[in-house]
């Protein structure tokens, strides 16, 4: 008998099976992905059971590089934008920037399930019990991206965000001790150095996409004025 060595994904799935025993996986060779499906039971912090969601999670090859896509198949969550879910049940767990960074920084299946998936569904149940969402939510579409730049990167205006993005895309070498691009008068190392690192980590593709959107936003604002 020949035993095939388990892949990293298979090992990671085995590691979470104790916490998510009603999920199973299969391989989709055509789309080069792993497909996780089954029931996700949600209990509150005291352990009391609330509800069960039928879920489908697509984990694209290679693992763990891409952010998995998750679908709710049980239709417990109303299919409207306000509930952060598509009409096909795809769940928008977080701003893509955060998810991408999390995986770049080593997030694996266990962290994804525990820090992103389970809280998302618990939050939906919190809202369904007429309490609203337990915490904050992002605005939809590009407004949400701008919110991310403002709240998480401390770049409150599109002009500032554009300036930072361009500095990365233009591969400008920024001295840690030079004045920060934001114009605060402080040295970069004491101001937006971490933000510059984060933007670099996000990668050129994301930054170019955001830059186009920021510029279009500026144009539309100018047009309105």
């Amino acid at each position: 008998m020949i035993f095939k060595k388990p892949t990293l994904f298979e090992k990671d799935f085995a590691a979470i099976s104790d916490l998510y025993p009603k999920l199973r996986y299969s391989r989709d060779e055509k789309h080069k992905s792993w497909v996780i499906s089954g029931e996700l039971d949600i209990c509150d912090a005291t352990g009391l059971y609330w509800d069960t969601f039928q879920v489908l999670i697509i984990v694209r090859h290679p693992y763990p590089v891409h952010v998995p896509n998750i679908f709710e198949r049980s239709t417990i969550i109303p299919r409207t934008e306000a509930w952060h879910i598509s009409e096909y049940g795809e769940c928008c767990l977080d701003i893509p920037h955060n998810l991408k960074l999390a995986f770049k920084r080593g997030m694996r299946l266990a962290g994804f399930m525990h820090e992103k998936v389970y809280p998302y569904f618990a939050n939906q149940l919190h809202r369904l019990s007429r309490q609203g969402y337990a915490g904050e939510e992002y605005d939809h579409r590009f407004e949400g991206v701008m919110q991310y730049y403002k709240e998480e990167l401390n770049l409150p205006t599109p002009i500032l965000a554009t300036q930072f993005i361009k500095s990365i895309l233009d591969k400008k070498i920024i001295d840690r001790n030079s004045a920060c691009l934001c114009g605060s008068g402080r040295k970069t190392k004491k101001c937006h150095l971490a933000v510059l690192h984060t933007l670099t980590e996000l990668g050129e593709k994301v930054l170019r996409h955001d830059l186009v959107n920021f510029e279009q936003w500026e144009v539309s604002l100018a047009g309105n004025n």
């Binding site: 912090a45 009391l48 609330w50 977080d94 893509p96 992103k116 809280p119 618990a122 919190h126």
Partner: peptide, 23 residues
Amino acid sequence: PAVYANSNNLAPIAVKSKPYYDF
């Protein structure tokens, strides 16, 4: 669950979620 549970107890887990929408 409304019969036996309190949604406030969902909050410590739910608050970690900050959902977005762009489809």
